[in-house]
Amino acid sequence: MAKSRRYVETLEKVELEKLYSPQNAFELVKELATANFDETIELSARLGVDPKHADQNIRGTVVLPEGTGQEVTLVVFAKGEKAKEAEEAGADFVGGEELAEKIEGGWLDFDLAIATPDMMSVVGRLGRVLGPKGLMPNPKAGTVTFELEKAVAEFKAGKLEYRVDKTGIVHLPIGKASFTEVELLNNYRKIMDTLAKERPAAAKGRFLRSLTISPTMGPGVKIDPAATMNYLEE
Protein backbone atom coordinates (compact mmCIF):
# COMPACT_ATOMS: atom_id res chain seq x y z
CA MET A 1 0.00 0.00 0.00
CA ALA A 2 1.40 3.41 -1.00
CA LYS A 3 2.44 5.67 1.87
CA SER A 4 1.53 9.35 1.89
CA ARG A 5 4.27 11.94 1.46
CA ARG A 6 3.61 13.21 4.98
CA TYR A 7 4.01 9.69 6.42
CA VAL A 8 7.27 9.13 4.53
CA GLU A 9 8.64 12.45 5.78
CA THR A 10 7.83 11.63 9.39
CA LEU A 11 9.21 8.11 9.01
CA GLU A 12 12.60 9.61 8.13
CA LYS A 13 12.76 11.04 11.66
CA VAL A 14 12.63 7.57 13.23
CA GLU A 15 15.55 5.17 13.62
CA LEU A 16 13.52 2.03 12.98
CA GLU A 17 15.78 -0.41 14.83
CA LYS A 18 16.58 1.90 17.73
CA LEU A 19 15.12 1.32 21.19
CA TYR A 20 14.42 4.76 22.63
CA SER A 21 14.24 5.73 26.28
CA PRO A 22 10.69 6.59 27.39
CA GLN A 23 11.54 10.29 27.61
CA ASN A 24 13.09 10.44 24.14
CA ALA A 25 10.31 8.32 22.65
CA PHE A 26 7.56 10.68 23.77
CA GLU A 27 9.53 13.71 22.67
CA LEU A 28 9.83 12.16 19.20
CA VAL A 29 6.27 10.86 18.91
CA LYS A 30 4.91 14.37 19.43
CA GLU A 31 7.00 15.50 16.46
CA LEU A 32 5.51 12.70 14.35
CA ALA A 33 1.91 13.82 14.99
CA THR A 34 1.58 16.23 12.05
CA ALA A 35 -2.03 15.60 10.99
CA ASN A 36 -4.52 18.46 11.06
CA PHE A 37 -6.30 17.07 14.12
CA ASP A 38 -5.26 16.16 17.64
CA GLU A 39 -3.93 12.66 17.10
CA THR A 40 -4.25 9.94 19.72
CA ILE A 41 -1.00 8.43 20.97
CA GLU A 42 -1.36 4.64 21.07
CA LEU A 43 0.68 2.16 23.08
CA SER A 44 1.21 -1.44 21.96
CA ALA A 45 2.84 -3.63 24.60
CA ARG A 46 3.79 -7.20 23.67
CA LEU A 47 3.85 -9.30 26.82
CA GLY A 48 5.51 -12.65 27.50
CA VAL A 49 2.24 -14.49 28.04
CA ASP A 50 0.24 -17.18 26.26
CA PRO A 51 -3.38 -15.92 26.19
CA LYS A 52 -4.64 -19.42 25.35
CA HIS A 53 -4.14 -20.24 29.04
CA ALA A 54 -6.77 -18.73 31.32
CA ASP A 55 -4.20 -17.82 33.99
CA GLN A 56 -2.26 -15.74 31.43
CA ASN A 57 -5.24 -14.01 29.79
CA ILE A 58 -4.52 -10.61 31.33
CA ARG A 59 -7.48 -8.28 31.71
CA GLY A 60 -8.23 -5.33 33.94
CA THR A 61 -8.66 -1.57 34.19
CA VAL A 62 -6.39 1.40 34.74
CA VAL A 63 -7.19 5.02 35.56
CA LEU A 64 -4.87 7.37 33.68
CA PRO A 65 -3.79 10.24 35.95
CA GLU A 66 -3.85 12.73 33.06
CA GLY A 67 -6.98 11.30 31.41
CA THR A 68 -7.21 10.18 27.79
CA GLY A 69 -8.15 13.45 26.15
CA GLN A 70 -11.10 11.66 24.58
CA GLU A 71 -14.83 12.14 25.04
CA VAL A 72 -16.31 8.83 26.23
CA THR A 73 -19.92 8.01 25.39
CA LEU A 74 -21.37 5.76 28.09
CA VAL A 75 -24.41 3.49 27.99
CA VAL A 76 -25.76 2.27 31.34
CA PHE A 77 -28.28 -0.53 31.83
CA ALA A 78 -30.13 0.20 35.05
CA LYS A 79 -33.61 0.72 36.45
CA GLY A 80 -35.33 2.64 39.21
CA GLU A 81 -33.10 4.63 41.54
CA LYS A 82 -29.98 3.22 39.92
CA ALA A 83 -31.06 4.61 36.55
CA LYS A 84 -31.52 8.02 38.17
CA GLU A 85 -28.07 7.69 39.80
CA ALA A 86 -26.46 6.93 36.41
CA GLU A 87 -28.14 9.89 34.74
CA GLU A 88 -27.08 12.28 37.51
CA ALA A 89 -23.51 10.93 37.30
CA GLY A 90 -23.30 11.88 33.63
CA ALA A 91 -24.12 8.70 31.69
CA ASP A 92 -25.06 9.51 28.09
CA PHE A 93 -27.76 6.85 27.65
CA VAL A 94 -29.59 5.00 30.41
CA GLY A 95 -32.25 2.33 30.02
CA GLY A 96 -33.24 -1.30 30.09
CA GLU A 97 -35.26 -3.41 27.70
CA GLU A 98 -35.81 -0.57 25.23
CA LEU A 99 -32.07 0.18 25.16
CA ALA A 100 -31.29 -3.49 24.51
CA GLU A 101 -33.75 -3.54 21.62
CA LYS A 102 -32.13 -0.43 20.15
CA ILE A 103 -28.72 -2.12 20.23
CA GLU A 104 -30.16 -5.32 18.74
CA GLY A 105 -31.41 -3.12 15.92
CA GLY A 106 -27.84 -2.10 15.08
CA TRP A 107 -27.24 1.03 17.16
CA LEU A 108 -23.70 1.08 18.55
CA ASP A 109 -22.88 4.79 18.89
CA PHE A 110 -21.16 4.49 22.25
CA ASP A 111 -17.74 3.63 23.64
CA LEU A 112 -18.56 1.69 26.79
CA ALA A 113 -21.46 -0.18 28.37
CA ILE A 114 -22.03 -0.49 32.10
CA ALA A 115 -24.76 -2.56 33.77
CA THR A 116 -26.03 -3.24 37.25
CA PRO A 117 -25.95 -6.97 38.14
CA ASP A 118 -29.75 -7.21 38.13
CA MET A 119 -29.82 -6.08 34.49
CA MET A 120 -27.52 -8.79 33.17
CA SER A 121 -30.48 -10.96 32.23
CA VAL A 122 -31.37 -8.24 29.71
CA VAL A 123 -27.78 -7.49 28.68
CA GLY A 124 -26.85 -11.16 28.37
CA ARG A 125 -28.68 -11.59 25.10
CA LEU A 126 -26.54 -8.84 23.57
CA GLY A 127 -23.38 -10.91 23.88
CA ARG A 128 -23.22 -11.72 20.18
CA VAL A 129 -23.43 -8.01 19.36
CA LEU A 130 -21.36 -6.45 22.14
CA GLY A 131 -18.83 -9.25 22.65
CA PRO A 132 -16.96 -8.95 19.32
CA LYS A 133 -16.82 -5.16 19.79
CA GLY A 134 -15.31 -5.47 23.27
CA LEU A 135 -18.34 -3.70 24.74
CA MET A 136 -19.91 -6.46 26.83
CA PRO A 137 -20.13 -5.46 30.52
CA ASN A 138 -17.87 -7.58 32.70
CA PRO A 139 -17.33 -7.64 36.49
CA LYS A 140 -13.53 -7.95 36.08
CA ALA A 141 -13.51 -4.72 34.08
CA GLY A 142 -15.63 -2.88 36.64
CA THR A 143 -18.50 -2.51 34.17
CA VAL A 144 -20.96 -4.71 36.07
CA THR A 145 -21.59 -2.88 39.33
CA PHE A 146 -24.17 -1.24 41.55
CA GLU A 147 -21.71 1.62 42.23
CA LEU A 148 -22.80 3.56 39.17
CA GLU A 149 -21.87 7.04 40.35
CA LYS A 150 -18.28 5.93 40.92
CA ALA A 151 -18.06 3.85 37.74
CA VAL A 152 -19.44 6.56 35.45
CA ALA A 153 -17.19 9.22 37.00
CA GLU A 154 -14.05 7.06 36.65
CA PHE A 155 -14.65 6.04 33.04
CA LYS A 156 -15.53 9.60 32.07
CA ALA A 157 -12.31 10.80 33.72
CA GLY A 158 -10.02 8.39 31.89
CA LYS A 159 -10.44 4.87 33.25
CA LEU A 160 -9.59 2.33 30.56
CA GLU A 161 -10.25 -1.36 30.19
CA TYR A 162 -7.36 -3.40 28.81
CA ARG A 163 -7.12 -6.98 27.64
CA VAL A 164 -4.31 -8.91 26.02
CA ASP A 165 -5.21 -10.01 22.48
CA LYS A 166 -4.59 -13.49 21.04
CA THR A 167 -1.04 -12.51 20.02
CA GLY A 168 -0.11 -11.37 23.53
CA ILE A 169 -0.37 -7.64 22.85
CA VAL A 170 -2.17 -4.98 24.90
CA HIS A 171 -3.30 -1.93 22.90
CA LEU A 172 -4.21 1.25 24.78
CA PRO A 173 -4.59 4.95 24.02
CA ILE A 174 -2.16 6.84 26.23
CA GLY A 175 -3.22 10.42 25.55
CA LYS A 176 -3.30 13.04 22.81
CA ALA A 177 -0.53 14.68 20.79
CA SER A 178 -1.52 17.95 22.48
CA PHE A 179 -0.53 16.52 25.87
CA THR A 180 2.82 17.61 27.26
CA GLU A 181 5.63 15.06 27.42
CA VAL A 182 5.23 14.99 31.21
CA GLU A 183 1.51 14.20 30.92
CA LEU A 184 2.17 11.39 28.44
CA LEU A 185 4.95 10.00 30.63
CA ASN A 186 2.69 10.09 33.70
CA ASN A 187 0.08 8.03 31.86
CA TYR A 188 2.76 5.68 30.52
CA ARG A 189 4.20 5.10 33.98
CA LYS A 190 0.75 4.28 35.35
CA ILE A 191 0.03 1.77 32.58
CA MET A 192 3.43 0.11 32.88
CA ASP A 193 3.14 -0.09 36.68
CA THR A 194 -0.27 -1.71 36.28
CA LEU A 195 0.87 -4.24 33.68
CA ALA A 196 3.98 -5.15 35.67
CA LYS A 197 1.80 -6.06 38.65
CA GLU A 198 -0.33 -8.28 36.39
CA ARG A 199 2.56 -10.61 35.51
CA PRO A 200 1.20 -14.18 35.88
CA ALA A 201 3.22 -16.68 37.89
CA ALA A 202 3.16 -18.99 34.85
CA ALA A 203 4.77 -16.40 32.53
CA LYS A 204 8.33 -17.37 31.58
CA GLY A 205 11.24 -15.25 30.42
CA ARG A 206 11.01 -11.51 29.84
CA PHE A 207 7.54 -10.15 30.57
CA LEU A 208 7.85 -6.90 28.58
CA ARG A 209 8.86 -8.21 25.14
CA SER A 210 8.39 -5.03 23.10
CA LEU A 211 6.86 -1.58 23.52
CA THR A 212 5.80 0.76 20.72
CA ILE A 213 4.05 4.13 20.74
CA SER A 214 2.61 5.81 17.67
CA PRO A 215 0.34 8.70 16.70
CA THR A 216 -2.89 7.93 14.84
CA MET A 217 -1.48 8.82 11.43
CA GLY A 218 2.25 8.33 12.01
CA PRO A 219 4.91 5.63 12.36
CA GLY A 220 5.74 3.77 15.54
CA VAL A 221 8.60 4.48 17.94
CA LYS A 222 10.09 1.55 19.83
CA ILE A 223 10.75 1.96 23.55
CA ASP A 224 13.47 0.02 25.34
CA PRO A 225 11.77 -2.35 27.84
CA ALA A 226 14.88 -2.32 30.06
CA ALA A 227 14.92 1.47 30.13
CA THR A 228 11.22 1.38 31.00
CA MET A 229 11.85 -0.86 34.01
CA ASN A 230 14.59 1.52 35.17
CA TYR A 231 12.19 4.44 34.66
CA LEU A 232 9.56 2.75 36.83
CA GLU A 233 12.10 2.29 39.62
CA GLU A 234 13.14 5.96 39.68
Rank of each mutant, 00 (worst) to 15 (best):
A157H: 01
L11R: 08
K133A: 15
V129S: 00
A2R: 00
A177N: 03
T143C: 14
A45E: 00
H53V: 04
P65I: 09
P117H: 08
A100M: 02
T116D: 00
E198C: 01
K82P: 09
I223W: 07
N186I: 11
Y7C: 10
L47A: 09
D55E: 04
K197D: 02
S178C: 02
E181I: 15
A2M: 00
E233D: 15
E198H: 06
L16Y: 00
E88I: 11
A203G: 04
N24Q: 05
S210G: 11
V62L: 06
P139A: 05
L232V: 06
A86D: 10
V129F: 01
Y231W: 06
L160I: 14
E12N: 05
D193W: 04
V63E: 12
S44D: 02
E104W: 04
Y231K: 00
H53P: 01
K79I: 09
S21D: 03
E87H: 02
G90M: 08
N138Q: 06
P117A: 10
R46C: 02
E98Y: 14
E104M: 12
V164D: 03
E149Q: 05
L232S: 03
G60I: 05
A113C: 15
A177Q: 02
A196V: 03
L19V: 05
G96V: 04
L148P: 12
P219V: 14
V14W: 02
A54T: 14
A89S: 11
N138Y: 07
W107P: 12
M192Q: 13
F155A: 10
S121C: 00
I213P: 15
M136E: 05
G95H: 08
N186F: 13
A201G: 09
E17I: 10
L126E: 07
K52I: 15
E31P: 12
K82R: 08
A153F: 12
R59M: 15
